[in-house]
Every structure is written in C-alpha cells, then in structure tokens.
Design a protein around this nucleic acid. Structure first.
Lengths: 144, 144
DNA sequence: TGAATTCCTAGTAAATTTGTAGTATATTAT
DNA sequence: ATAATATACTACAAATTTACTAGGAATTCA
C-alpha cells in the first residue's frame, strides 16, 4: 500500500513551483538541485503534470515550468492521482473502464471501494497552499 | 497504492477457514483447490498468519489449519496488516522503530499519517464474520 | 510402515519502480 | 547567425519487489 516516489516527488515538485510562483518560469535543473532529485526523472514526472495541465512550460533559455493556477486551487489528491495513476487499492476500481465486469457482487470489492473513498477524502481535503504554508513554517524537509 | 495478492489471498483464505470452522483442521491443499490459488504460495501466506496466532495448525494426516477465534473476533485490518506488513503509505510510518528520526517536522508526513488512519479506520471496522455473511449471500466471488 | 500434511529454506521468473542516456526541438541573449 | 539554455521525446537499464516454484525434513495418524 505504498505511495511511489513519483507521487512523493510530485508533491515536492509542485510545492517548489508554488513557492517560486512569482519568479517566472522555473527550470527542472533548479528544482532538481534544490530538491536533490534526478533531473531526468523529474522531467518524466513533470511531463505527467503538464499533460493534465497542472503546469505549463516554455522551452529555451529562461524557460521552464510554472503553475497554471493558484496554489490553493490544487489538492494533494489531484496531484497524486495524476502521477500515481490512481489511488485505488485494487485494479478493479481503476478508472471507469472495468469495475469488475464479470463480478459485480465481489465480496471484497466493497471494502476496497470504502478504502479508496477514505483515502480520496483525506488527500482531497488538503491544498497545495497548505503544503507551502507548512514548508515555510517548518523548513525544507524532504524525507517522506 | 495497491494491496498485493498476499493480502487479498489472505482474506479469501481466512474467509474459507471461517466458513469451514466446524470441520476440524482444513488442509492447505483443499483451500488451494477451492480458491484456485497456488498451494505453495498459500503455505507462505498462512505461515504469516500462524506466526501471529491468527490460525493454528497440526501436521500429519488429517492435519491442517483452523481459526483460533470466532470469525467475528477478527478484523479485515488485522488480517491485512499481518500479511501486507503495514498499510502505511510511506516507510517512515512503518512500525514504531523510525518515525522519521531526522525529520520530525516533515511537511508531508502528517498527510501520510492521516491517510493511514483513514485506511485503518475502514478496515478495522469490518469483521471476518461480515465477509462470511456476504460470501454466503452472494456466492464465491474471487476476483478482487 | 506409509500416506498425508505442515514446516523450512532457497531459488527464480515476471513485473514494476526508479532511474539513465542521447538526441531533437525550441527560445533567448549576444 | 550563433551559442547557450531549456524542454520534448524515445528508448534502454538497473534495482527492487512481487508472485510464485522446488525440494526435502519433520510430524501425525491409520
């Protein structure tokens, strides 16, 4: 039941972008340096966020990424779902397509649905702005 | 954020044992056949449950496993934690030892703690007896 | 004694995660 | 124009975890 580095790095990445939201476009390189994360790996993660329009980019010198909205308009849940794929504990609950076709009355499915709902409720109640505030208050912890 | 087959198989295994709770010791072989799960793999999973005294065993002919308590006295959460290791979304929240020593004020740790609490609350509120009742009502669905 | 069964240790194949590498393309400053 | 700086894209590779498989020792019962 682990969150992967993709999701965790994405939160740090987005928090970093939020903190520098008034500094124009921010390069992956500078984020990678500050957060001590592989530049190339960050590139792949931010691509997922860009595809879903959570961030926008420009190429070339002075290029980089920036948020498309205000930090308070993002939830942690949304960031995690874009990067982790889904927070569902079983594949059967993954996006629309197949809620377990041949097995609508699966005994355990309802449990996984409750778990998913509970997780979503938590992560959807926390905004990116909250992370920014905490970060400014507590310092730049990057372990979890 | 997936539950592995270990946890899912464990639920089916325990439900199977609960349904046959008055039939004496139940062999792995018979469970494996009914549930269509590898015998050897089940053996490893049930070992985890035996170590924590959720089931007891006897060897030899007519041997096998049985529950140590009534089905209503087990929660799904307990079964999952024994087999999955922990339901924590990050390693920092894993069992006592290190709640992130060098980083007590990790920005995201508190989010993961809330997620863990929410998950535990759900799975701890469901008993094995509930799974048995549902199974008897709905039939032997084994997909999730 | 022999069949059935758990107990124990190791190995292994497949899948997933976590990156690396290299090149093409675009933008800006000089 | 050209050089420097970035993203965009594709492919590959190492490391880790998951999901099994294999084989034999120990135990129990008929």
């Amino acid at each position: 039941m682990k969150i992967s580095t993709k999701g965790r790095y994405a939160l740090r990445l987005m928090t970093d972008l939020a903190i520098h939201k008034d500094d124009g476009y921010i390069s992956i390189k500078s984020i990678a340096t500050r957060q001590n994360i592989s530049e190339k790996y960050l590139e792949q993660i931010i691509k997922l966020l860009a595809k879903e329009n959570l961030v926008e980019s420009t190429r070339g010198a002075q290029g980089g990424y920036k948020l498309t909205r205000e930090p308070i308009e993002y939830t942690v849940g949304e960031i995690l779902r874009v990067t982790e794929g889904s927070l569902a504990p079983v594949a059967c609950l993954e996006t629309d397509d197949n809620p377990c076709e041949n097995c609508m009355d699966c005994v355990t499915l309802e449990i996984w649905q409750c778990v998913l709902d509970a997780v979503n409720k938590v992560v959807d109640s926390i905004t990116l702005q909250y992370l920014v505030d905490k970060q400014k208050e507590k310092g730049n912890c990057i372990c979890c």
